[in-house]
Design a protein around this nucleic acid. Structure first.
Lengths: 226, 226
DNA sequence: TGCGCGCGATGCGTGTGCTCGTAGTGGAAG
DNA sequence: CTTCCACTACGAGCACACGCATCGCGCGCA
């Protein structure tokens, strides 16, 4: 699955690239509008993530240029909500979906999946670790046969941990992927949410799927904590 | 089922394309009148959606050209209600039905289904989830054996939820599919209508088919809420 | 045929419960 | 003993649900 990311903010671009690659996407990044257009025309991507504010050539022009050339690759446009540019205009120029900044990585992935699904290019995804099961599209989680209800944020954290099951995931990673890219609050919030998750998915079932790796982060056991 | 959409407003075109593809139609889009006529003549579509105001060649001329050439593919014409062009003229030139802009996606689909049904090219579609049943063509809804009467808007929302039964559907999705493409009111209206639907299809039967997924959207249970 | 009245559909404003994030303290590991 | 993590309590903000005003349409009557 090939993805082109056209984004000049290095921080966002690299976080997205790392994350998508970890999920098995092949990611190209363009830091300028002209580069982005060039890459999009020269290669056959499955989906394009396109920032609007770009040096060289803005996202609208890239988008409409591609469409005029008969290129109908699904495009997800990133819009700032400062009013200067808006979503309607994004769709007008031929984008398939939009996302307002700031956004978090997991939301981006969810939207990409939806786009790919609509384009008929992807199969339904499901995460599994032992008897712990999570379906992103359905927004549902099970331990064995019993369903667990989680809040949106709890769900996102668990989804990310599951997407990297077996790995040690640093708190910084979690923060960068689950929270908005411009979140600047207390990193302690990650610990709070891991705690809440344990209380919901581990304790009632006498398991310990989420392990603490002191000084490094957390690891979700691939056997679900048996 | 093949559909040709001739429409120059990218926003409308891509929204229609996405939606129809999600329902299993094969959709071609033409952005100019000349392209549209060309595609319509070269391919055998099951139905054609045709905007009137088009760059290159307007919808009337495309329509009458096709009819003169012996092409009787059902045509649904899109008219703006500014009075410059009108519906009578659309039908005169050989269109089978018309729709005034702005329109919402579900209305478009309903009309297309009606056209296909009249042309004898489509099987009756029916949505089912547990004992909840909806027939788009008849515009009727049942819970078990008792019929439920809904307003147009309520029906549209339920139809869309049923078309994606089991999935979490975001409020934004519902808004974009059920309301006019240019609706810019309070998104809160979605919550209002979900509430009304519950009062009509859930509460009287002590069911809960429509679940709230806080922070994500709504989900229609595939078992109808048993 | 034209005007007026009533009802139903639609969408907006407002209240409330829940979620989220912060701060602070207690505890365990190294 | 120090550092890092777990847990709790609480306040602010938001997502959601509910009642109400408005708009438009259809029916009835003149």
């Amino acid at each position: 699955m090939r993805v082109l990311v056209v984004e000049d903010e290095t921080r966002v671009a690299s976080a997205v690239k790392r994350g998508l690659e970890a999920e098995g996407f092949a990611v190209d990044v363009a830091m300028t509008g002209t580069d982005g257009l060039w890459l999009a025309q020269e290669n056959d991507y499955d989906v394009i993530v396109l920032d609007i504010m770009l040096p060289g050539m803005n996202g609208y022009r890239i988008c409409s240029t591609l469409r005029e050339g008969g290129n109908w690759t699904p495009i997800l446009m990133l819009t700032a909500k400062d009013g200067e540019y808006d979503e309607a205009e994004a769709l007008d120029t031929g984008a398939d979906d939009y996302l307002t900044k700031p956004f978090s990585y997991v939301v981006l992935v969810a939207r990409l999946r939806a786009l790919l699904r609509r384009a008929g290019r992807s199969e339904t995804v499901m995460y599994e670790a032992g008897d712990l099961r999570l379906e992103p599209a359905l927004h549902r989680v099970w331990r064995g046969d019993t369903e667990i209800s989680l809040t949106a944020r709890e769900f996102s954290v668990l989804e990310y941990l599951l997407s990297r099951a077996g790995d040690v995931v640093s708190k910084r990673d979690i923060l960068e992927h689950v929270w908005d890219f411009d979140f600047e609050g207390d990193p302690n919030i990650v610990e709070v949410y891991v705690g809440r998750l344990r209380r919901r998915v581990d304790e009632p079932f006498a398991r310990r799927a989420i392990e603490t790796v002191r000084g490094a982060g957390y690891r979700l056991r691939t056997d679900g904590g048996r």
